[in-house]
Amino acid sequence: MDSLIVTDTVVPLPASPAHRKADGSLPTPRPRAGHFAWIDIRGLAEGERNAYLQAALHHRVDGIVSDDPAVLADLPPTVRRVLVVDSAADQVKPGAADVVIGEGTPASAEDAEGGVHVVVSDAPTLTVACQLVREVDWTLLTFTDPTKIPLEIVIAAAENSTGRTVTVVNDITDAGIVALVLEHGSDGVLLKPRSASDIATLQGLIDGTADHLELVELIVDSIEHIGIGERACIDTCSLLEPDEGVLVGSFSTGLFLSCSETHPLPYMPTRPFRWNAAAVHSYVLGPDNRTRYVSELRAGMPVLAVRSDGSVREVRIGRVKIERRPLISINAFTPDGRLINLIAQDDWHVRLLGPGGSVNNVTELTRGDRLTGYAPSASRHVGLPITEFCDER
């Protein structure tokens, strides 16, 4: 039997006999298909409850949690109906719910998946949570202490199990942290909203930003050395891949994929957390398809790290360094014939990514060279895409 050390306590990690196949082998772990959100409507007045239900359905929240079967009865099949019962012995009528959660003791129903709510407040209750998370379909977790260490331990215990974990969160900020614990985080979060807008914000957090961008091939038209100006280096709180960078450019409708300092350089070590971004007026693409000026960036802000295949992730800025340096202006054409621009530091060690993740030093670019970029059709107003006439040159 596997085990997990929790301070001075050994937590056993058994596979429930009920979950073994007939031949004694373990079932195939359920794939982790991304995070999801549940909304808790218990104890709400009818008017408030109905408003939250409408918001949850509109934003396609995964599940609604109630202790009243009548409230769940009229919900459409697009949402998971989660019924919480006081005792595993409570009788649940057929068709009343998709998931039945027992308080402290696993519950089940003939035509619904079973689960349990565990309040983790000390080492013994943590041991119980680590056992149950491998035995039931759904484990709803409430942690009484602000530290996320107990959640990390439960997530580790749940590895390769067939069940799902759902963690009760206090607010939107807490939900964002819980979703990232041990990288993949709790499978789901349960929030009792304070307003309908909380539901929209929570589902937006769960959906996250786009995980892929359609990058295009840019054709270099001209290069010009333009003298002194201010440029920025962006240092992040993440280690970057060799073909990973940020999308930057002078125009909102055409951005170049800059290269992180992950490749060897003469006279200095690699800095795999950094981009030598661009001049301070440049746009940088961030989450939610929003751009910001380089000069606006601050420690703690999010930006998108983009790889040459178009995959993206959100990373946080650790530091922005703005310094006066010689600058180089690079003009290139998008596939639809638009001329776009990037102004970067005029130095050999500043690089842009090209097709296939090729690395191109800006001082060695020539007309006709091919680079990788992003060419959205919409203009920008305060960083947000907007359909209006806008001539950038």
Rank of each mutant, 00 (worst) to 15 (best):
S3M: 03
T9W: 02
V11M: 11
V11G: 11
P12D: 06
L13V: 04
S25V: 15
P27Y: 07
T28S: 14
H35D: 01
H35N: 09
H35P: 14
A37C: 06
W38M: 12
L44S: 01
R49V: 10
N50L: 04
A51Y: 01
Y52H: 15
Q54E: 09
V65N: 02
D68F: 01
D68A: 08
V71C: 13
D74T: 09
P77D: 15
R81A: 01
D86R: 04
Q91W: 00
A97G: 05
V99Y: 03
V116S: 01
V116F: 01
V118P: 02
V118G: 01
S121Q: 15
A123P: 05
T127G: 08
V133W: 08
V136M: 07
L140P: 00
L141A: 12
L141K: 01
F143V: 02
D145G: 13
K148V: 11
E152Y: 00
E152H: 05
E152I: 00
A158M: 15
A158Y: 15
A158C: 07
E159N: 13
S161C: 12
R164H: 09
T165Q: 14
V169Q: 03
I177L: 10
G185S: 02
L191W: 07
P193C: 05
S195H: 11
S197D: 12
T201M: 06
T201A: 12
Q203M: 10
A210N: 04
D211K: 09
E214I: 03
I223S: 03
I223H: 00
I228S: 09
E230A: 08
D235R: 15
D235C: 10
S238D: 13
L240Y: 09
D243G: 13
E244D: 12
G249N: 04
C259M: 13
E261W: 05
P269M: 02
T270P: 09
R271H: 04
R274C: 13
W275T: 04
P302H: 03
L304C: 14
S308Q: 06
R324W: 01
I330L: 07
N331T: 12
T334L: 09
T334A: 06
G337P: 07
L339M: 08
A344R: 01
Q345V: 10
L353W: 01
G357C: 09
V362S: 00
D369F: 12
R370A: 14
R370Q: 15
R380S: 08
T387E: 11
F389N: 10
